[in-house]
Design a protein around this nucleic acid. Structure first.
Length: 312
DNA sequence: TCTCCTCGAGATCT
DNA sequence: CTCGAGGAGA
């Protein structure tokens, strides 16, 4: 059988700076660092509500190739131990049932998510892994700026967290959980409130990729479905963000700039922009160029856009 | 001065 | 992957 890995993990969730009420702490062990060649051999997830662990899911996984000595030395996981373990294909559905749509929290969590995402794709789950996530590595770097390194073991040492038995996923989940709680309380103390921290660290201008939809089924007849859409200028009925959310919920894709992929450019008003003052925006110019070159791009007035979104 | 965009440095995961 | 520096354009 042949499987293709998506080069860009299109449906991957968003990296959040947030402190959700409920979340999933996650850690995996693998046979190496490369999601293409290496395999997952252990998954642990902790379900947390109001910062209290309420459920756990953990399993060893039998890889298709043997575990090499370096990894056995690092993790303590031997080929004998996984001999009778389920395959990744068997584990993923249960894993998904457990995590649902919860926000995932982990240390350098992109590593875990990329592995899981690709394995979902390989085993026939078209959407990959779409959960949004919070990275304790990112939080740690923002919070403990004077620390030289921000590896999990460095943050654990800083907060006096016991790391005996690290590099097994259950233990690493527990360490990550403790580190997260410490970071959270330190942030609260230093900034006065979590909200204050978030306000100061939120990206100044939101980007199209920072928005997601929770919808899983779309009306494929809607003119915006599966189209790539950019917006220029100010809309009268919605903020830019609201409009993008509507597009995503209708199954469209939002872009921050006009590209060769773009199908529609929605034309807002630039009259009040002190820089452009009614001149053509860079997006509009680009769209006109592409249209001349024969690309499949249409420039839509704001009203046509409202007509399109009301056809749901 | 402000915003958008590109690019490179540095660091982390098994 | 994330962040920040530095350039381009207005």
């Amino acid at each position: 059988m042949n499987f293709t890995i998506e080069k860009t993990r299109t449906n991957k969730g968003t990296s959040l700076l947030d402190f959700p009420d409920s979340y999933i702490i996650i850690d995996i062990e693998t046979t190496g660092l490369d999601p293409i060649y290496d395999e997952i051999i252990e998954i642990t997830v902790l379900k947390v509500n109001q910062d209290k662990i309420v459920d756990t899911f953990t399993t060893l996984i039998k890889p298709t190739k043997p575990i090499n000595p370096f990894i056995t030395e690092l993790t303590g996981i031997t080929n004998d131990m996984v001999e009778n373990s389920p395959s990744i294909t068997d584990v993923l559905p249960d894993f998904l049932t457990f995590i649902k749509n919860e926000t995932l929290i982990g240390h350098n969590i992109n590593f875990d998510i990329n592995f899981l995402y690709d394995n979902f794709i390989k085993t026939g789950h078209e959407k990959g892994l779409t959960n949004n996530f919070v990275d304790t590595l990112r939080l740690g770097r923002k919070t403990l700026k004077n620390l030289k390194h921000h590896r999990l073991k460095d943050l654990a040492a800083y907060y006096n967290i016991d790391t005996t038995g690290a590099h097994r996923s259950t233990k690493d989940c527990e360490i990550t959980y403790q580190v997260y709680l410490h970071l959270k309380s330190q942030i609260k103390k230093e900034y006065g409130s979590l909200e204050q921290f978030l306000r100061q660290n939120q990206p100044k201008t939101f980007t199209a990729s920072s928005l997601t939809t929770t919808k899983t089924e779309f009306n494929t007849d809607n003119p915006l479905y599966n189209k790539y859409i950019a917006i220029t200028g100010t809309l009268t009925k919605f903020t830019r963000k609201e409009a993008m959310q509507i597009i995503l919920d209708l199954g469209g894709h939002c872009e921050d700039k006009v590209t060769e992929k773009t199908n529609y450019l929605i034309l807002g008003n630039n009259d009040y922009n002190p820089i452009l003052r009614g001149k053509k925006s860079s997006k509009l110019k680009k769209a006109e160029q592409l249209k001349l070159k024969g690309y499949d791009i249409e420039i839509l007035s704001e009203n046509i856009f409202y007509d399109f979104i009301s056809q749901s």
